[in-house]
């Protein structure tokens, strides 16, 4: 009797759960995983925007022709796109994670106006990226921009910033770091969860600041460092707004990021099949980078015994 009653409750609970999950079920199927499969499928056809017009011929199955095309056609220069995308992503992830960790540790001390400073570092993140890019492009104007004026004042070399293929990616990394305030907030949250007992125990044992940093703060922060690296990677590998708003992939093809290349192929060239092939290769590269991160993380993430897994 009792068992039966429990199972009725369980069935009711299960039914409620599925009802609450309807949005997620729809989302996961129709805007996430089915489109992912479809991206692979479309990549095997010669679908173009013109196929949408009435009386247009039906698109044809072309097997892996799009893939051979993107990897061999020098006009597409896909290798270059892969290289600069990965280069930008890694460079941006490492710089912004280090920057935000340092800022978070400084902000975690007692100081007047902490809330104000936290906002100062966070605000660049909420500003629309396109507007940020446009604003920065003027500040970094090679001849008149304020940044070069300051650099010259300090006796440093002025830079060409967005106007040279050598400096455009480091410049974009710099702006990515400037806008990484969201990582700081998450690091700050994590720092507040570092058990004080450890810190105090180490202090009594005479450990200095650097020793405590190395043996307590950083190990306790590794799960959050991992989380931030992962989130920052997902964002930065998809970099596209700088290209859409100011660089247009240039100078030359030096900022022709994979996402922008896909956008150009699909929405300027109308070649949806080829663009899907690009998107799918992009997916595989992103997955490989994430997998590398997950696999290596086992060796450097420190889980506090007891209250981790939940």
């Amino acid at each position: 009797m009792k068992k039966r009653k429990r199972s009725i409750i369980a069935i009711k609970e299960q039914r409620a759960a599925y009802i609450f999950l309807i949005p997620a079920l729809l989302g996961l199927s129709f805007i996430t995983y089915l489109p992912l499969l479809a991206a692979f499928g479309v990549g095997l056809t010669d679908l173009r925007v013109s196929h949408f017009f009435p009386n247009a011929p039906t698109p044809e199955f072309v097997g892996f022709a799009n893939y051979t095309e993107i990897f061999t056609n020098p006009m597409i220069d896909f290798g270059n796109s892969i290289l600069i995308t990965v280069y930008f992503a890694l460079f941006a992830v490492i710089s912004s994670v280090i920057y935000s960790m340092i800022i978070a540790m400084l902000l975690n001390r007692k100081m007047p106006g902490r809330g104000f400073f936290r906002s100062v570092f966070y605000v660049p993140y909420i500003l629309p990226a396109a507007a940020v890019m446009i604003g920065w492009s003027f500040l970094m104007d090679p001849t008149n921009g304020i940044v070069n004026v300051i650099l010259k004042q300090l006796g440093l070399q002025p830079s060409l910033f967005f106007s040279s293929s050598e400096t455009v990616i480091p410049t974009l990394v710099l702006i990515a770091v400037w806008t990484s305030g969201n990582l700081i907030v998450i690091f700050l949250a994590g720092l507040q969860n570092v058990p004080r007992v450890y810190q105090e125990a180490a202090e009594i044992d005479g450990a200095n600041y650097l020793q405590r940093l190395r043996h307590i703060t950083i190990p306790c922060m590794t799960p959050i460092i991992f989380y931030n690296i992962l989130m920052s990677l997902v964002v930065n590998i998809q970099v596209v707004i700088p290209a859409l708003s100011i660089t247009k992939g240039g100078p030359g093809r030096s900022s022709m990021f994979m996402t922008f290349l896909m956008y150009e192929e699909a929405f300027r060239g109308g070649r949806l099949g080829r663009a899907s092939a690009i998107a799918f290769v992009f997916f595989i590269i992103a997955a490989i980078l994430a997998a590398i991160l997950f696999i290596t993380s086992k060796s450097w993430i420190f889980y506090e015994g007891g209250d981790d897994k939940k």
């Binding site: 089915l34 992912l36 991206a39 997902v234 996402t259 949806l272």
Partner: peptide, 17 residues
């Protein structure tokens, strides 16, 4: 897992739909 899936991968199929 879908958190890690870049939105641009699904952009074209969704556009077609």
């Amino acid at each position: 897992g879908s958190m890690l899936l870049p939105t641009m991968v699904t952009l074209i199929p969704l556009y077609i739909a």
